[in-house]
Design a binder for these strands. Structure first.
Length: 208
DNA sequence: TGTCCGATTGGT
DNA sequence: CCAATCGGACAG
């Protein structure tokens, strides 16, 4: 039995939240079963000033609407016409910041994850392919755009405290695939757990 | 309405 | 390196 993170946990800037979400447990209760995983990789996207963010320049559209709402809600969008990406809304209402969940260490429901990913049976060799990327983890956990705007205080999709990582166990790198973002691509706003084999792009060396 | 392109992934 | 595949953002 796990308890949802309090809404106050999300009431901080996206960079802080991205760091603090490492080690927390993401849970999805679906009709087919429950799946969960420990968050091992995140990226922060900060409101109007961040050229990489969907809300750059204060763009408030149908898609980005939930980012302008209160913290602790799911912002889920479709990318490349085929994958859904899960974000957690941060900061406060009217301040459109969010954290992209990029990778999980699978915890519960691994056979179901393997099935949803189209990998057939769960095997030792499959395990690293389940949730090692933003598109993979939503597919594995059955998280779709139907859950866009979901309240993370609910019982369907939520995050609970699990373990905490010390700063020595965490690394910050530039964000992935945001070449269009000018100088903002240099911000060290991607956070990963050092040594985790479940991240999207493995950490190899310190940046400096 | 038309065009361009993406906070990705998997295969060549 | 490149195709898949389609909704969002924006120009006209």
């Amino acid at each position: 039995m796990s308890i949802q993170l309090a809404q106050s946990f999300y009431e901080c800037d996206a960079v802080t939240l991205a760091r603090n979400l490492l080690g927390c447990l993401l849970v999805h209760n679906a009709p087919e079963g429950q799946t969960s995983g420990i968050i091992v990789e995140t990226e922060a996207y900060r409101g109007p000033m961040d050229e990489a963010a969907h809300t750059y320049g204060g763009r408030k559209t149908k898609r980005t609407q939930v980012m302008f709402g209160p913290p602790g809600y799911a912002y889920i969008y479709r990318i490349y016409g085929m994958y859904d990406c899960l974000n957690v809304v941060a900061a406060e209402e009217g301040c459109p910041e969010a954290v992209l969940i990029r990778a999980l260490h699978p915890h519960e429901g691994l056979p179901l994850m393997a099935h949803r990913r189209g990998l057939g049976q769960l095997t030792p060799g499959n395990e690293l392919k389940l949730c090692s990327g933003p598109g993979k983890l939503t597919q594995a956990m059955g998280i779709t755009r139907e859950l866009n705007g979901a309240d993370l205080q609910g019982n369907t999709l939520f995050i609970s405290a699990n373990r905490q990582y010390a700063d020595t166990e965490v690394v910050a790198t530039p964000r992935i695939n945001i070449d269009y973002a000018g100088e903002w691509q240099n911000k060290l706003w991607r956070f990963l757990v050092v040594g985790s084999k479940h991240v999207s792009i493995p950490y190899s060396r310190p940046l400096s």
